[in-house]
Amino acid sequence: MFRAALMPALLAVTLAGSAACAQPAQPQNQQQPAAAPAAAPVALPANVRVYDVPAGSRPHDVAPGPGNLVWYTGQRRGTLGILNPETGAVREVRLGEGSAPHGVIQGPDGAAWITDGGLNAIVRVDPATDAVRVWRLPAEFPDSNLNTAAFDREGRIWFTGQTGIYGRLDPRSGEMRVWRDPEGRGPYGIAATPSGDIYYVSLAGSHLARVDRETGAATLIEPPTAGQGARRVWADRAGNLWVSEWNGGQLSRYTPSTGQWRSWRPEGERTRVYAVYVDDRDMVWVTEWGANATLAFDPATERWTRYPGSGANANVRQILGRPGWVYLPESGLDRIMVVRTGG
């Protein structure tokens, strides 16, 4: 509870005009290296708050919930966590024996949709009743290591499994189809573009793939950097695909209309870019594990703004948000960081 008590105090100090404990986010090249383990508490930017979640949760992914609530997957506790950022209160919904949820998104029905590796199932949690409904993968796809999901415009949920699969569930009929990635192991992040196309990336396969939403066929798109380890993908408002390259240590953009790629590398000797998310202003957010930080990249100016983890080994594995807010699950610290980006 230390953190929950400390952060409002920090914010209060900041609002009173002091910069002793908090400061504006600064461009990356004006910052010191990431704090070493057991260093003094990190001074967080003024637009940041940090919330504790139950110990041992390992919050893996986050998503906007109803109202101002924030959902997260408690991967170690087998829960959907529900954070109220106005009070810091957390409530948990247990997903079932053996659950180890990875991804969570909000569906068009307003419910939480979860890719649960432990249950090897797609799970829906009703936001009004907490009712949990489970769609298990077909028996021929056991232990698929389910990862992430995205909805298409037809209301079907597409998902990836790291053992080498991707699939589609129509919640209305219950029909589930599963396909094998042409290159095997690795499907990780998945996203829908504004025009409704579905793309996913493969970490072990180092490729981007566009999925035909009717036939399920995947067309592979090879980034120019070999062996880059494409981990997550997100689309901006123009439909460009932004890819976080783990092994390549850089952020890349693919423009479907021209087939062109362009890449940007954060500063650092051994960069590891894990998550990517494009916010409502087309700012591109990535987590860079080599620096233990989240970076906001402005494509217009090509400048990076750095948000340090709230402690060593914050391990932010995914980013999501809503207009004016960005959510960062610090899986290594059992904390959720919330960044205010709008007025």
Partner: peptide, 21 residues
């Protein structure tokens, strides 16, 4: 082998087959 299914997304078992992960 069943337990190893949790590892195969990032690790190969064949010699010399590192993955990016």
């Amino acid at each position: 082998a069943r337990v190893f299914a949790q590892c195969v997304a990032c690790h190969a078992i064949e010699p010399g087959r590192n993955t990016p992960a």
